[in-house]
């Protein structure tokens, strides 16, 4: 049973939910659990983590850790690793987690795997499961040597809900960063707020060209009185502005009805819409991951179905 070091994360002053998911994962493996938490003025959060299953929490409390930096965080996490000699280090696959984990692995010459959604013991070794090819396949992996580092997909595991008395220990840190933090800013929001929409019809690369959003998708959007959304590739290609993007790096939505048209369902898109009340997917590839989260779907040519659907909706409205 591996001794696990959890790298906790603070988001907006509170303990990030993904940290408690790491706790659940580590405890499920059955070995000792210790945690490290980095930030500034984090006494209360460290206490909270220690009472929510994080075990002994090493609290690195330093003004220089208020903002994430790869240099600063890597050096402090290394300190914790040297002190605790864990077999396994778990880090959330978040913008700071995916940034620091590979740096740590290279510094320690340690084996690493990113974005896993499952870790299980098998024959005295650990088996890690994650997606490949943007969700088309899953893979099972082994990581040689000790320690092993894994980043874990947020939301993949239910958060630990127990309360256990742990302890908090200060970890004296002297972080330095070559990168200078300047500011956080919000990407231009535009006027296209999808988070309050009742119905969203989103289009993906399957629409083929930007003109088809107007010609093919819009009649359906209008017939339903819906809002139009889009997948990341569509926005990256400049077909629609960023404010249309649904997904982890765009808007996270939860409408009563979400219709995905020509969207294969990359993880980053699914994260943004899978909690919609009802999902209809239209995509020509029956194996597209979008059908896994959809309630109803059709693996047909969207250019035939979408106009027919727009017409049927208009007719139903009378």
């Amino acid at each position: 049973m591996p001794k696990t070091l959890i790298v906790g994360e603070i988001q907006g002053g509170s303990l990030r939910e993904s940290t408690l998911e790491l706790v659940a994962l580590a405890r499920g493996l059955g070995g000792d659990v210790v945690s490290v938490l980095l930030g500034s003025g984090i006494g209360g959060t460290a206490e909270e983590l220690s009472n929510k299953g994080g075990g002994k929490v090493l609290a690195a409390d330093h003004a220089g850790l208020e903002q994430y930096s790869a240099d600063g965080y890597a050096s402090v996490i290394r300190q914790a690793i040297e002190q605790e000699s864990p077999d396994l280090i778990l880090i959330g696959n978040t913008p700071s987690g995916w940034d620091v984990a590979p740096k740590l692995a290279a510094a320690l010459d340690a084996g690493i795997i990113t974005d896993v959604f499952k870790i299980e013991e098998a024959g005295g070794d650990l088996l890690f499961t994650r997606r490949l090819f943007n969700g088309k396949f899953d893979g099972q992996f082994r990581v040689a040597g000790t320690p092993k580092i894994a980043t874990v997909q947020p939301g993949a595991i239910n958060a630990y809900e127990g309360s256990d008395a742990g302890s908090v220990e200060a970890l004296s840190a002297a972080p330095e960063s070559r990168t200078k933090f300047l500011e956080l800013r919000t990407a231009a929001a535009g006027g296209h707020d999808l988070t309050k929409a009742e119905i969203i019809v989103s289009g993906g690369r399957g629409l083929g060209k930007p003109e088809n959003f107007e010609a093919v998708l819009k009649p359906l959007v209008e017939a339903l009185g819906a809002q139009m959304g889009a997948s990341r590739p569509v926005v990256d290609a400049g077909w629609l502005p960023h404010e249309y993007q649904v997904g982890s790096s765009g808007q996270v939505v939860q409408p009563k009805l979400y219709i995905a048209v020509g969207i294969s369902g990359a993880i980053q898109h699914l994260v943004g819409m899978k909690n919609s009340n009802f999902i209809i997917a239209i995509n020509k590839d029956p194996d597209a991951p979008i059908f896994e989260v959809a309630d109803m779907g059709a693996a047909v040519d969207l250019f035939e179905l979408v106009p027919a659907l727009a017409k049927a909706v208009a007719a139903a409205k009378g």
């Binding site: 690493i112 969700g135 899953d138 990581v143 999902i279 029956p286 059908f291 959809a294 309630d295 779907g297």
Partner: peptide
């Protein structure tokens, strides 16, 4: 240090009701 044991098509969950 990282090796792939196997890859496979993700098991189908309940999935969509395909029309």
């Amino acid at each position: 240090k990282l090796s792939i044991e196997k890859i496979y098509t993700p098991p189908k969950g309940e999935g969509a009701n395909l029309l």
